[in-house]
Write a protein that binds this DNA or RNA. Structure first.
Lengths: 186, 186
DNA sequence: GAGAGTTGGTAGACGGTGTCTACGGCGCGC
DNA sequence: GCGCGCCGTAGACACCGTCTACCAACTCTC
């Protein structure tokens, strides 16, 4: 049974997608991996660092999906696709998404997150620059757009938006956000 | 020492603003309130319900500040002021903001949150409708705008936006968001 | 005014958690 | 062949949330 480190992360990913963040106790992960509760400490000095490694797997997965987006579509369509993908990811991976954007997890994951989010953000900036050549600082628009997507995903996750909108469909919101930041109609 | 219920909430609010969400254990709150760890159970059946009551205080505070916004300014200026207030609240009350928008806390706080967020959202919808009489469904725009503000506050809270933007100033983002959803220039 | 019942808090037990430390077995290199 | 370092175990510790038994004080009733 080699590579306990990798197995712990794998078990954690499995656990969080199957049972949510509540199941991610150090001892439970160790139990499912078939080792004693002290074993993970060999590879992860603290519970949080293990959670961060699990979350990092989530970042990688999200990054991979974004990287796999149709690269030859027009910028506007690509942004829409990216937005939809972001929302779908949040919806389809509730536990993982929650874990990925947990304050404490992010705290200890500074460098790891930076490595994955910076290139992703660069993609978004380029898309915005291509879709709106008129705007002086595309990074600002890209940041605002990203925040918008994230806000929709987050608020949508726990139903706040659905509550005030009296609708379960977040698609109009998504269109509104893309249209707002990219200008023009859909 | 009457009204232990209120005192527990008060202690909790104090504790979360002073030391963050990590200090909000049931036993610690009871300790600071000068009662045994079993006492809170008389008023809050579970730890989460106490946290929800503390968070509710946060909702009330935020609602009060929003309600105190200059009511006679033009809609566009009011939206900008509201956006700034939302961000300032998140920045100035990190622990409380974090608590207020915790999945588990929101879960059990469904009705309480609904009561405060719905009227607030209505204010925003009216502002959007006033600022953009052309738009057919102001609620959708208001929802997207709210998500945008929340995303900026959330991502800004843990420095993600600052990281990708290489800047600590979120003001341009805020302006970009308001301008995007309300149209026109600042 | 005395007794009963309710209210509001205490104290301790239980299972669970994260962290830490001492220990053991195994394999590899000298 | 043997020491040593790596990797995992086992148990202790303090803390946590929940639950239950108890108790003191107050109120209500006859």
């Amino acid at each position: 049974m080699p590579d306990l480190r990798a197995r712990l992360v794998e078990v954690g990913v499995d656990l969080v997608t199957r049972e949510g963040t509540g199941a991610l106790s150090l001892r439970e992960i160790a139990r499912r991996a078939g080792v004693s509760h002290g074993a993970p400490r060999r590879y992860f000095p603290t519970h949080l660092s293990l959670l961060a490694a699990i979350a990092a797997e989530g970042y990688r997965g999200l990054a991979a999906r974004i990287a796999a987006l149709e690269p030859h579509a027009p910028p506007r369509a690509r942004v829409t696709a990216l937005a939809r993908l972001y929302l779908d990811f949040a919806r389809g991976n509730r536990g993982m998404f929650e874990l990925m954007f947990r304050h404490e997890v992010l705290r200890g994951n500074d460098v790891g997150l930076r490595e994955t989010s910076r290139p992703l953000f660069r993609v978004l900036v380029d898309l915005v620059a291509a879709a709106r050549p008129d705007v002086a600082r595309p990074a600002v628009v890209a940041g605002a757009l990203w925040a918008n997507l994230h806000g929709i995903a987050q608020l949508g996750q726990w139903g706040s938006l659905q509550m005030v909108l009296d609708s379960d469909d977040l698609e109009p919101l998504l269109d509104a956000a893309v249209t707002a930041h990219l200008g023009g109609s859909s």
